[in-house]
Simulated assay, not measured.
Amino acid sequence: MSRSRAWAELLRLPALFTVPGDALSGAASTGAPPNSRTLLAIGSSLCLYEAGMALNDWADREEDAAERPHRPLPSGRVQPSSALTAACALTAAGLALAARAGRPALAVAAPLAATVWAYDLALKHTPAGPVAMAAARGLDHLLGAAATTGRTREALPSAALLGTHTFAVTTVSRRETQGGSSLPPLAALAATALLTRLVARAPRGTQDATPTGTGARAGIGARSGVPGGAGRRTSAHERPGLTLDVALRTALAAAYAATAGRPYTHAALNPSPPLTQRAVGGGIRATIPLQAALAARAGAGLTAVAIAALAPIGRRYARKVSIT
Rank of each mutant, 00 (worst) to 15 (best):
L24R: 02
A146F: 03
R100D: 00
G205T: 11
A268Q: 05
A257I: 06
I307N: 01
Q277W: 02
L40G: 01
L252I: 12
M53E: 08
R37S: 10
A209L: 12
T265R: 15
A66R: 15
L106F: 12
P312F: 05
Q291F: 05
A159V: 11
A105W: 00
R174F: 10
S181K: 08
R3C: 04
A257L: 09
L198A: 14
G261D: 07
A6R: 03
Y264P: 03
A230Q: 14
G299W: 03
P69M: 10
H237T: 12
S2G: 05
A318M: 09
A113H: 00
S181E: 14
R174H: 15
L40N: 03
T214A: 10
A293N: 09
P80Q: 08
E9S: 09
E154I: 03
G283M: 06
V78E: 03
P74R: 02
A145P: 01
R297H: 10
A32Y: 01
Q178E: 15
I323V: 12
S4I: 13
E176Q: 10
E62Q: 12
P289N: 07
S45L: 15
G21A: 05
H70C: 03
K320D: 11
L162M: 15
A87P: 08
L11Y: 01
L269H: 06
A300K: 02
L95M: 05
A89L: 15
L252N: 02
T303Q: 06
G225D: 06
